[in-house]
């Protein structure tokens, strides 16, 4: 690791002020992407602004029928939360499939979506449920938040404070994990919401995306068989040492079927 200065602000406002003062600073949430990145000297921030001391960023609560998860809430808390299991069990299931127990004790939902790793799980849930990302200054719809590989709509000095998930009628997530890293080679989140059916795919392409052809098919018939009539275009998908684009296209349909079957319970 290159050397850096460390700050532990007690409030979001103070963290924003630090980011403005130190243009080469990075935010530190759970650290389970950032610290390995620093160890490999793939990044050289001048300062780390640790969000771990800001109590207002942590916790899970209901707000007007929606589920609000604080940005610094670790995956393990979402996995084991009675409130999450009662209201949107698909989120508890998704959180429980991230990494391993020790990773889940540290990694956070806010860190995951702000990083927007193409193979991360949380972006699928945020986009699949049509959630709203709350920041220190505004609310961003999921459809506008994830803009590209490791890119989001966040400004350089903007901090995610919470994610607001509307309650779906039913939802589920199915993931084909890489056997070594547990990152999604393909993950599909399916939700039937008040605003219609939404399907979000992670792990398959440079950025999480909605599979609108399947959304239309499921709107007509919310059943695993609906997947059969949908074509997944492999030309837009990733090929790497783990899987070819064609294989990922195949996995999208398999995972979609499993997610739908699971949502039907």
């Amino acid at each position: 690791m290159y050397a850096f200065e460390y700050h532990r602000p007690a409030s979001v406002a103070e963290a924003v002020r630090l980011l403005r003062e130190k243009p080469e600073a990075k935010l530190l949430a759970g650290g389970h992407t950032l610290i390995p990145t620093l160890k490999q000297r793939l990044a050289q921030p001048s300062d780390l602004v640790d969000l771990g001391g800001i109590a207002e960023l942590r916790g899970i609560r209901e707000e007007g029928g929606a589920l609000v998860i604080g940005a610094a809430t670790p995956h393990g808390e979402v996995e084991t939360s009675d409130l999450v299991r009662r209201t949107i069990p698909a989120l508890a299931h998704l959180a429980g499939e991230i990494g391993d127990p020790q990773v889940r004790n540290r990694g956070t939902i806010g860190g995951s979506i702000a990083n927007n790793d193409p193979a991360a799980d949380w972006p699928a849930a945020v986009l699949g449920l049509g959630a709203t990302v709350r920041t220190d200054r505004r609310e961003i719809a999921a459809d506008d938040f994830f803009t590209g590989m490791f890119e989001t709509a966040l400004e350089a000095d903007e901090i995610v404070t919470a994610v607001v998930f509307p309650r779906p009628r039913r939802a589920a997530y199915a993931k084909f994990p890489n056997p070594a890293s547990r990152y999604a080679m393909v993950g599909v989140f399916v939700a039937e919401t008040d605003g219609g059916v939404r399907v979000a795919v992670t792990g398959a392409a440079p950025c999480v995306f909605r599979l609108t052809a399947l959304e239309r098919a499921l709107a007509a018939n919310f059943a695993p068989e609906a997947v059969d009539g949908v074509t997944v275009d492999a030309s837009e998908l990733n090929s790497d040492i783990h899987a070819s684009a064609d294989y990922r296209a195949h996995l999208v349909k398999v995972m979609a079927k499993r997610a739908i079957a699971s949502a039907l319970g």
Partner: peptide, 24 residues
């Protein structure tokens, strides 16, 4: 952060101490 040889408890939760800064 993969092998778990460095697991300790931090405030009652198991963590990989190779992926936590001492100052945290």
């Amino acid at each position: 952060s993969q092998c778990g040889c460095c697991v300790v408890h931090l405030d009652g939760r198991s963590v990989k101490s190779c992926t936590v800064l001492a100052v945290q």
